[in-house]
Simulated assay, not measured.
Amino acid sequence: MTTVLLADDHAAIRAGVRMILETAPRPVEVVEEAGTAERALELARRLHPDVVLLDIRMPGVSGLSVIGALRRTGAAVIMLTSFAWDEYVLAALEAGADGFLVKSAAPHEIVDAVHRVVSGDAVLSPEVLRAVIDRAVARPPSPAALEDGPPPERSRAAAEAAPGEPPELPAEALTRREEDVLRLLAEGHSNQQIAHRLVVAESTVKTHVSHVLTKLGVASRVQAALWWGRHGRGT
């Protein structure tokens, strides 16, 4: 069974999402809850959940600050938040988040998002992904600029989570097929859709995506899409 860690500073939100996940037709096990980003990171390192549902604004360190470290535990990260502004979407995705959901999402959308990231897909509509890529090309944001007022003092855990900027050139040249997969990925297609377009098995697409992420030095398919938007389009 897929396992999830819930991280939100509102207990009522955590209780509601837990009920949605655990009573779904394809139930998901909520292994633990956290009220702060630092606690979420501590629990993720100990429990190794498949997915972390993470709020952006939390007491002390923001959710944005720990995305990279959460990804390094092996978990996929979905931002679950009240804020749907482009700046927050872009900052979260650049930091390595696998998707973005507003808290007003329908229950089935939340459950579907969890299963999709576990299977290797991103949780972002093609329209939103294209808008985010265009925004990234025009004006890369600074996550620190999204905080309310002066940023809080960063803990060691938060500091080590800060994402690095991927290089303009991949460490190893992409093959023609990998470029095809990356282009379709950046257009917002799922692995299944890419497989259909290229007339290959979905497992083959997953292998290509894995190679692309490694060569680009990024942690998620959304980061790869952002790289393509900045460095690959039109080349």
Rank of each mutant, 00 (worst) to 15 (best):
A84W: 08
A15I: 14
V28F: 03
L169E: 15
L185A: 08
E165L: 02
G229D: 02
Q192R: 12
S190G: 08
I56A: 01
R197K: 11
L185E: 14
L101V: 10
D86W: 04
L64P: 02
A157S: 09
D148K: 07
E147Q: 14
S104L: 12
H189K: 01
T207A: 14
S142C: 12
L124F: 05
V117H: 02
E38A: 03
A173C: 06
E202I: 10
S62H: 05
F83V: 05
T2K: 14
P49C: 08
R135M: 11
R135E: 12
T36Q: 15
R177D: 12
T214F: 11
W85N: 12
M1F: 14
P140H: 01
A105R: 02
V209R: 15
I110Q: 00
L146P: 06
P27T: 10
E33W: 00
L64T: 12
L64G: 07
L174T: 01
V52E: 01
R71H: 12
Q193D: 06
P141D: 08
L169P: 05
A37N: 07
E42H: 12
P59K: 08
Q223M: 03
T204L: 12
A138D: 04
P25K: 09
P150S: 12
P143K: 08
G149C: 09
D148A: 15
T2N: 14
T81F: 07
G188A: 13
L21G: 04
V30Q: 09
P126I: 11
R116C: 05
V31T: 04
A158L: 03
R14T: 03
A171C: 06
R14A: 08
K215T: 11
V123M: 01
S65R: 13
A105K: 02
P126C: 06
G229C: 05
H196Y: 11
V30K: 00
L213K: 06
E22Y: 08
R177W: 06
V31M: 05
G234T: 11
L146G: 01
W228F: 10
W227A: 01
Q192D: 09
V117Q: 02
A225E: 01
E179P: 04
R154Y: 13
E187H: 07
E187I: 04
A122C: 05
V218N: 10
L70R: 10
G229M: 05
V77M: 09
A219Y: 00
W85G: 10
S82V: 12
E172R: 09
S220Q: 15
D50W: 14
D86S: 14
D121A: 15
S119K: 08
V222P: 00
T2Y: 15
V181Q: 00
E29L: 03
A95N: 07
T23Q: 15
T175N: 02
E202M: 15
M58Y: 00
A161K: 09
H211K: 14
R156Q: 15
G63H: 02
S155H: 04
E94W: 13
E178Y: 08
A76L: 11
